[in-house]
Design a protein around this nucleic acid. Structure first.
Lengths: 353, 353
DNA sequence: CTGTTAGCGCGTTCAC
DNA sequence: GTGAACGCGCTAACAG
């Protein structure tokens, strides 16, 4: 009966009547060992259910083969897609995945990065947006440098760069451009009062989408009306409640641009319950193109974001840039495009169907 | 300029002009050190951006403080909820999370468990169902024993036990009972031809739900008709295609029990496109009660599963059972309940609304 | 082919 | 207060 805890090379060697390195060589298999000896060792290995100690191994070699990723919440469908892309690519390259969630708290995020740095992850990938202030950016920049120096790599995935000098990789998608394109659809259909719904201005993602919205307004010569910006938390329920309340006070828009498909889902519920038909009376667009968007009735016109690709690219770049001499920040920008479905129509028009 | 790679205690000691243990003591803080010395050491620590080597630490102490979990696919909303519960509870207890996905392949799952065992995770949590055959069960049983002996713990989360003798913790929910309850709703409303839609018989989860369905049929004295079992992959698109095809060949049912909310979403689309109104002409129920279920029109009657609680319980039990002397398998069963929404009506009836 | 030696980075003795 | 010595489990180098 092997003693509790795990068997070590020493235990195996003792049982097989050989020295420790011999056992090591049998396991590695990259060195000649007499057949009879090998048999004895293999037998002992099996009997003791030997499992190598990763830490001792890592101590001799270099860092652990792992990729860390940090996100707000695994339950967000778009986060989940990114996570899947990361997981897939990491597994393909024989890497382990470490995961941390922060609930959107910048402080917890900084802590998580520090933790991952201690773990010696090869890359630390930050997913999604944050509320960033100066103190946050300063600390994150310093962490990027620290990771870089330790031979690791910070990757910003779906959020803007920390500055040109910072040794971090950025994998973004066309956030502003997508918002511009989808807002333009609404304007082209004749809408002039478009509610920008959801998010908070300090969040990098919503800020960029708002910027795209405003630029589209400019293009069409429509004045920006701050009263048409309605913040809301990133959940369908918060969106539902928020829009219901606003509708109770009267409707001053003919279309809604929801920052997120989930928010669009909540908005749709509020609109429908208020007896407003979509798209006949109110048009609605979202952003993200997550799978459940096709379950909505009418199906949602939205902006497709290549989330899985985002995750895969993040891993690929991080691992490749580690191989090469430490260069400054790489920057990749993935494209987005509008997916036209059935939630947009000209204002006021009532189709025959 | 510190040399590339990470600074070690030795580097710090050298720079501060002290010995290695002194630096170690400053960091631990649990030992008296002269104030002036401490200052010098702290300065060096900062300048060199010292980060402790986790592996060396783990080598001296015990296993790494980490919980591993293995699941089919992060993108499944129910998996994501479990993952969130695990992540939350693990973080609360100061544990790191390791994650692996398998795409539903039993072989990859076994490999993943072995990998996690090598990593020395405190607990290895398996989420969701698998196609299990005898060989799989045998191997998994042996891995459970191996983990147990190494002081770790295997947790089966949302899937049946491997046997009474196996040193593993099982956290299940009332899968069969939930299916029984929701099927009974359909039968009570007057339906006699209920399509069991989605899943495969070898999957533990669908097998259990099918069992509940059959028991309800028995209770109502309705003969089980194998022709009313229609398998389908676990995606909304596969479900949509599958049901559309079946409907093209004629409709021989008045209600659908979808094994999963996602499958229900696909089914609803197929039904609607075929011009069948739900619930007036066909009733529909799902299973899981994931958030997007409320976005469906009509809102889906389904079975609520406490997925987050499942994840939290798994972590709690695993960590607690490690503290106590190795006992056999614990077994926890969490309750489920039907959530009545708007997708069920008596067959043929057309409500006034 | 196999055993001995050395050292990865850290924390814990034990002396001074 | 502080430094020297040892060992965690493993592998790479050198002997034999």
């Amino acid at each position: 009966m092997p003693r509790p805890g795990r068997a070590t090379l020493k235990d195996v060697a003792q049982r097989a009547g050989v020295s420790v390195p011999t056992v090591s060589r049998v396991i590695a298999g990259n060195y000649p060992v007499a057949v009879s000896t090998r048999r004895r060792v293999e037998k002992a290995l099996r009997e003791l259910d030997y499992v190598a100690n990763t830490h001792a191994r890592a101590l001799r070699g270099q860092a652990i083969k792992a990729v860390a990723f940090i996100l707000n919440d695994v339950r967000g469908p778009s986060f989940a897609q990114v996570a899947h892309g990361i997981e897939e690519e990491a597994a393909r390259r024989g890497r382990l995945c470490l995961i941390c969630t922060t609930g959107g708290d910048p402080v917890r995020e900084l802590d998580a990065v520090r933790l991952m740095r201690e773990q010696g992850a090869e890359a630390v990938i930050l997913i999604g947006s944050v509320r960033d202030d100066d103190s946050y950016r300063r600390q994150m920049r310093s962490l990027a440098a620290s990771l870089d120096q330790a031979g690791s790599r910070l990757v910003l995935c779906g959020r803007p760069s920390l500055g040109p000098e910072v040794p971090a990789t950025v994998v973004e998608y066309e956030n502003e451009a997508g918002a511009h394109a989808v807002t333009s659809r609404l304007l082209a259909a004749g809408h002039r009062r478009v509610l920008f719904f959801g998010g908070e201005e300090e969040q990098t993602t919503s800020a960029q989408r708002l910027a795209g919205y405003r630029r589209a307004l400019d293009d069409y010569g429509v004045a920006f009306d701050p009263a048409l910006v309605e913040p809301a938390d990133f959940t369908r329920d918060a969106a539902y409640l928020g829009l219901r309340e606003r509708l109770a006070a009267g409707r001053d828009f003919t279309a809604v641009f929801a920052v997120t498909d989930a928010i669009a889902a909540g908005a749709l519920r509020a609109l429908t319950e208020a007896g407003l038909s979509v798209p006949e009376e109110v048009s609605l667009v979202g952003y993200d193109d997550v799978p459940p968007a096709t379950d909505l009735r009418p199906q949602l016109t939205t902006v497709h974001v290549p989330y899985e690709e985002l995750g895969r690219t993040a891993v690929r770049l991080a691992l490749d840039s580690r191989a090469r001499p430490a260069q400054g920040g790489q920057h990749v920008l993935l494209g987005t495009h509008v997916v036209v479905r059935a939630s947009v129509a000209p204002p006021g028009e009532v189709p025959a169907a």
